[in-house]
Simulated assay, not measured.
Amino acid sequence: MKKIIFPLLVAFLLGTGAVRAQDNSELFIADMLTLADNFAKPASEGAAYQASAGWYSSAATLEKWDFRLSVHGNALFIPDDRKTFPLSNADLQLLEIEGSQNVRLPTAFGTQTATFFSGEVTFENPVSGNTETRAVRFKGFDGIDRDYVPHAFLQVAIGLPAGTEVTVRAMPQVTIDDVTASTFGLGLKHNFSQYFRNYSPEGFQLAAALTYSKFDVEYAFDAIEVEDLVMMNLIKVDAHLWMAEAIASKQWGAFELFGALGAASSSFDYVMGGDGPALITVNTQLQELGDVEAYFKTDLGFNIHLGRFRLSAMGTAGKFFNANLGLHVRI
């Protein structure tokens, strides 16, 4: 009897291993994560620069309990090296690039692509329980094809005691070229010039600030589907940014010059939108792609004061360049 049972047991285990070996859905998911990460990461970094720009245009703070309402317009300029990324078949585990071994594909900032990917995905159908194979073929993600990305938001600031100012920033959800974005932020600024000897409100101003921003971006694309396994049509980026900066400013009559040096830390979480039993697995593995980055940036600009009104213009430089215009009214 043992001579019969042992070979049967070995055959069963080998057979089970063979069935499992046929399931290559994890390789397909890994390839999709590779494509999604390269596509979305430059846009995540750009969103962090947009979120860090335009917070303050002066080291001076509001008088206690004064309010200031500000309307800002941003333009994030996209470097050419952030519009594409290289990919080869060696980077993929299951999919293949049709008609080529190496290509440059657009990021979310790039243009459209004519590159197609194809492969065969084998998986256990969760409904029937059978092992099935599906041919999959899809076009690479298209970017928004822009040299700059506009972004507008509102800010409200209130003066507190001891030369301190609190600012709240918000932008409602807006959609531009299949890209949806929204932001919220909170900032705290404290003036240190008040502790200097011979301090004067018209003199040199120095302040420090700490800000937090939450920036949500969604990128819609043509649905990529493996029937009975997964359908994906959206990449969501949840960005969190902490920034500390030193601000200096000096006013001469109606003209004020200001500059700032900042250090920021940003974290990104990705979520894929769509449907299907494998979507949970996709998003679980996407969480491992979440990234934390630290960087430095500089601001330089000027203000024109007109009574209760102030017009500001500034540039933020680092990995990206961001231009900001603001109209402020003191209440």
Rank of each mutant, 00 (worst) to 15 (best):
K2I: 07
P7L: 01
L9N: 04
L9H: 03
V10N: 01
L13Y: 12
A18F: 13
Q22A: 11
D23P: 02
S25W: 09
F28S: 01
D31R: 06
T34Q: 11
F39S: 00
K41R: 12
A43I: 00
S52R: 06
S58Y: 01
A59D: 03
A60T: 03
E63P: 10
L69Q: 09
H72L: 15
G73C: 02
N74S: 12
L76E: 00
L76G: 07
D80K: 15
L87R: 00
S88L: 03
N89E: 03
Q93R: 15
L94S: 04
L94I: 01
G99Q: 02
G99L: 06
S100D: 02
N102A: 13
G110W: 03
G110S: 09
T111A: 12
S118P: 05
E120M: 04
T122C: 05
P126V: 03
V127L: 07
N130W: 08
T131W: 10
E132M: 12
T133L: 06
A135W: 02
G140L: 00
D142W: 07
D142L: 00
D147F: 11
A152S: 13
A152T: 09
A157P: 07
A157C: 10
G159H: 11
G159R: 06
P161V: 11
P161S: 13
V166Y: 12
V168H: 06
A170M: 13
V174D: 02
T175Y: 05
T175W: 05
A181P: 06
A181Y: 09
T183A: 14
F184M: 13
G187H: 03
H190S: 14
F192W: 15
Y195V: 02
Y199M: 07
S200D: 10
P201L: 00
G203Q: 02
A207Q: 03
Y212L: 01
D216E: 14
E218A: 15
Y219T: 00
A220L: 13
V226L: 08
V230R: 03
M232D: 04
N233R: 05
I235K: 00
K236G: 08
V237N: 07
A239L: 06
H240K: 07
L241Q: 00
W242V: 08
M243G: 06
M243D: 12
E245A: 05
A248I: 11
S249C: 03
F255E: 02
E256V: 06
L257H: 04
F258A: 04
A263V: 14
A263D: 05
A264Y: 08
S267G: 15
G276W: 13
G276P: 12
L279N: 12
L279V: 07
Q285S: 10
Q285C: 03
E288F: 15
D291R: 15
D291Y: 15
D291N: 15
V292K: 15
E293V: 14
A294R: 10
I304R: 09
R310N: 07
L311E: 00
A313I: 03
A317G: 05
F320W: 09
F320I: 03
F321N: 12
F321M: 09
F321R: 10
L325F: 15
G326F: 01
L327H: 13
V329I: 12
